[in-house]
Design a protein around this nucleic acid. Structure first.
Length: 913
DNA sequence: GCAAGGTC
């Protein structure tokens, strides 16, 4: 590229109009820069003169808008019924410019014809490189002699851009190949599975989620399905959660200076006897000795500079904005010039960025302007060069304000919020961390260690401007090493492990980010797709639950033994792409291996399609009558329609029922106790029930869910004669918290009424009529319930605690003996008052030493199980302070189960094994 | 009517 006398025409192409404009501005130094329209209204053409290594150039700078081309199947494979979906693994595909990009293509062709060079300014990532080759293909087709060069830049900063143009390189074909492979694999897998499952399931079931199921598409994609998988997996985890009781010792000490709460350094124990032994040792020698007083300075650092994912996560957490909406609003702000490019992985500023200038712009703001002024005042010592999170997409800086605004008239509330977030986040990044003084005090009681901590914030620094974050501070009294005292309270408390919460949008983004599902620019699309396809729903707290459809699809593939809904497939593809992009594997090899495997997987999945049908059958009615329903074992002829048989079925939660095969025409159903773990129809018929024969069912109950007086194995009859079964249904309920085929307290087969079909029961208390997010039993600790008279959660009458006068909260018991029974408990943490709801109705005044499971707050400690549909989620749990001892003799010693002081719970005669 | 990836 040596200098020459003749001026050449150079066509420069950027990935988006904003980059074309920025590069043209930098290279021309805004001298002699002319702008004209191209054929596309968005993609202007900038013209200026420039010299590249002595070569005088007339520069034409224009842009595309992302990919110029799309990959498509050949015409004859595009219709859904044109071929077997399996053929899509070898059907010819081709790249072409779609209709809405034709005008950009024409601009490129026209300009390329009169140029000698083509310089590619696409983003410096794999997709950018691939777009570069699309541009090359279009331009070369009209000008075979073009010299093709690539500009590599890491930011739109003067020096970078001038350096890039003076050091042009060759485009990287490996990068582009990796994207070609990705595109082809995505297309073939996506189209084949989508067509297969849509055509298989759509017409066979009444899928009620869609308003018009003619347009229903049950799509499958290598990103959307793992995203759905995260949602379903968490949902299953919650359902499978089996609460486990644990024990912990708590200690508090009140002095003139205040109260210190000491936590047991063992955390908690699951072994009751062991906990009691230790507790008794402590109570017998309750003198506490201070063994350690540690004071240290703690720093809380401001967040890293803002990347797209962080913007989405924070907007979701702080404002409950969906990621999709956040990106729309951010795009608006970007287009109007108020913030920088919103799709960036970069979370560190280049040291060439003039950070002070960005802060200076904000000095006039009525709210945070004074903070910006303080930042710029060297005397204030507030400034700190921002740290970096270590991610760099080499194309864009972190999201930051680019223009001052104190709010524009056309902005919505969300525009204001998002701009404020971007500005405050930026100001926080260049600020000193908050400083706190933390005190940790450790004490020893009978050789058991406890600790308490307190924190005082010394300087808020960045927290002054970053109002979205807080740093809790609490004072504790002063203690001296070696000091001794008698605790004010020393209690043995029980708690129960709780399931994790549903995934929030922020959690979901983190899962995707971690597993490499999607990119910063597409993650919100995948989340939205789940909602659009009726695979998942989002509640007011931005938490996701799968719909019946979403759960059924994942369950179907899971039952096949495939992990098509897990992120592994995408990770493997990502690894292969990486290999292609560094030249370790060829595009052809990766394509052929991957597609061969996926085709085998597809064919096998099709062989096992009955799994998908079965899974769908659990959630949806069959439509039409052409196919026999998935049959169960016949128990008797239906006494209601007298035409079909009643069969034993297990629903998706692992709960059993006996339902009429003529459903939905006949809705007769018998719901079986929730404690049934196994059931099988025998060949023995009942002697008394008519019309016969009514075949007996061999039941196996989960022993810990039934009273000790009942046997775990039971040969029972659903015809109405079986007193044991009747009692167990009364005690345990039918256990069906899912929308089965009608949910009624029926044991007689004559009155099965379809009433709540598809209504989802609350996952915590298993009641219908509210969702899990509104569950009255979830008012943990309930210190926010202050109304007298009405319980705001349930709308039921509330009562006042007769001990301390605080309002009580209506909750649901969870113990083996009283599961489902309602009680009021005092909402004050200090008070143990409780009274059964039915006792209130009978005029009982309540008491203060309850059975297990009635006061305090639950712990999030969770022993997570794997997937389990039949899981016994006993609901969010309750704790009991059943002994309160210090200062008192050990008279608090009593059974937590029945309250009897003569024994401990492990020896309680009422306790199940 | 299908994917995911760019972008307006």
């Amino acid at each position: 590229m040596s200098g020459g006398g003749r001026t050449i025409n150079v066509l420069n192409v950027a990935e988006k109009p904003s980059v074309a404009k920025a590069v043209a501005g930098i290279l021309s130094r805004n001298q002699g820069l002319r702008v004209r329209d191209g054929r596309s209204r968005y993609n202007k053409i900038f013209e200026f003169n420039y010299s590249i290594r002595g070569q005088s150039c007339h520069m034409l700078m224009t842009s595309v808008t992302g990919h110029l081309m799309e990959l498509e199947f050949d015409e004859r494979y595009r219709k859904w019924h044109s071929c077997d979906p399996a053929d899509l693994y070898r059907a010819p595909v081709r790249k072409s410019v779609p209709e809405d990009k034709k005008d950009i293509k024409r601009t490129l062709e026209e300009e390329a014809r009169r140029c000698q060079w083509l310089v590619l300014w696409l983003d410096c990532d794999r997709e950018g490189e691939n777009i570069a080759f699309e541009v090359i293909e279009v331009c070369r087709a009209v000008n075979r002699n073009l010299v093709i060069r690539r500009a590599r830049f890491s930011a739109l900063i003067d020096r970078e851009i001038h350096q890039a143009v003076q050091n042009l390189v060759d485009p990287n074909e490996w990068f582009a190949d990796a994207v070609d492979a990705r595109q082809e694999i995505d297309l073939r897998i996506g189209a084949s599975f989508t067509r297969f499952q849509t055509m298989l399931l759509k017409d066979k079931f009444h899928i009620d989620s869609a308003t018009d199921d003619r347009n229903l598409v049950l799509s499958y994609g290598p990103c959307q399905f793992p995203t759905l998988g995260f949602v379903v997996e968490r949902y299953w985890e919650i359902q499978a959660h089996e609460p486990e009781e644990f024990w912990t010792i708590n200690c508090s000490h009140k002095s003139d200076e205040g109260i210190a709460t000491f936590n047991w350094m063992r955390g908690h124990l699951f072994d009751y006897t062991c906990a009691v032994l230790i507790y008794e040792m402590c109570v017998q020698e309750p003198t506490a000795t201070v063994t350690k007083v540690r004071q240290q300075e703690k720093l809380k650092y401001p967040p890293y500079p803002l990347s797209t994912i962080e913007l989405e996560k924070r907007a979701s957490r702080y404002f409950r904005m969906s990621s999709e909406h956040t990106m729309k609003v951010a795009e608006d702000l970007y287009q109007a010039g108020f913030i920088s490019y919103p799709r960036t992985e970069t979370d560190g500023f280049s040291n060439k960025t003039d950070l002070h200038a960005i802060v200076q712009e904000q000095q006039g703001h009525p709210v945070w302007g004074s903070y910006a002024q303080r930042l710029l005042d060297p005397g204030a010592g507030l400034w700190r060069n921002p740290s970096s999170g270590g991610h760099d997409d080499k194309a864009h800086p972190p999201i930051h304000p680019t223009k001052f605004s104190s709010g524009e008239s056309g902005w919505s509330q969300d525009h204001h919020r998002l701009y404020e977030l971007v500005v405050r986040h930026f100001l926080a990044c260049v600020s000193q961390p908050a400083v706190g003084a933390e005190t940790v005090v450790e004490i020893d009681i009978a050789a058991e260690l406890f600790s308490a901590s307190g924190r005082v914030i010394l300087s808020k620094n960045y927290l002054d401007v970053y109002r979205f974050e807080s740093w809790g501070g609490s004072m504790i009294p002063t203690y001296l090493d070696g000091q001794q005292f008698i605790p004010t309270t020393l209690t043995l408390d029980s708690g129960v492990t709780r399931p994790p919460p549903l995934l929030s949008e922020s959690d979901l983004l983190s899962c995707m980010d971690k597993a490499g599902i999607g990119t910063d620019a597409t993650m919100h699309d995948h989340i939205k797709k789940l909602l659009d396809r009726f695979y998942a729903t989002k509640d007011a707290n931005t938490r996701f639950s799968p719909t019946n459809l979403g759960e059924a699809l994942v369950m179907g593939y899971d039952d096949m033994g495939y992990e098509l809904w897990k992120p592994n497939l995408r990770s493997m593809m990502e690894n292969d792409m990486k290999e292609v992009s560094v030249g370790n594997k060829s595009k052809a090899d990766v394509l052929s291996t991957c597609l061969q495997q996926m085709k085998a997987c597809f064919l096998d999945a099709r062989l096992k399609k009955v799994k998908l049908l079965e899974a769908m059958g659990i959630f949806f009615e069959r439509s039409g009558g052409e196919e026999q329903q998935v049959a169960g074992e016949v128990v008797r002829q239906c006494g209601m329609c007298r035409e079909s048989n009643m069969v034993l079925r297990k629903n998706r939660d692992g709960n059993y029922m006996v339902g009429c095969l003529a459903y939905p025409q006949c809705r007769n159903a018998v719901w079986l106790p929730g404690s049934v773990s196994e059931a099988a129809v025998t060949t023995n018929a009942c002697n008394s029930c008519t019309p016969g024969p009514v075949f007996l069912i061999q039941f196996k109950f989960r022993q810990h869910e039934i009273p000790p007086s009942f046997n775990a194995n039971h040969l029972g009859c659903i015809g109405g004669c079986d007193e044991t079964l009747r009692q167990l249904i009364e005690i345990c309920g039918t256990g069906s918290r899912v929308p089965g085929r009608g949910r009624g307290p029926t044991v007689q087969s004559g009155n099965g009424q379809q009433s709540n079909f598809r209504q989802r029961a609350c996952i915590y208390c298993q009641q219908m009529g509210h969702s899990s997010s509104d569950c009255p039993s979830q008012v943990s600790g309930s210190r926010n319930v202050r109304s007298n008279g009405m319980n705001p959660q349930s709308g039921e009458l509330s009562i006042q605690c007769t001990t301390c006068g605080t309002p009580c909260v209506l909750r649901t018991a969870n113990t083996a003996n009283n599961r489902g029974r309602k009680f009021y408990s005092c909402s004050s943490q200090e008070c143990n008052f409780f009274v059964w709801e039915d006792d209130v109705n009978n005029g009982t005044r309540g008491r203060s030493m309850p059975h297990a499971g009635v006061s305090g707050s639950a712990s999030n400690t969770s022993r997570r199980g794997g997937r389990g549909r039949g899981g016994q989620n006993r609901g969010r749990d309750t704790d009991t302070t059943f002994v309160s001892a210090t200062g008192d003799p050990i008279s608090g010693r009593r059974c937590y189960g029945c309250g009897d002081p003569s024994h401990f719970a492990n020896a309680c005669p009422n306790r199940g094994t």
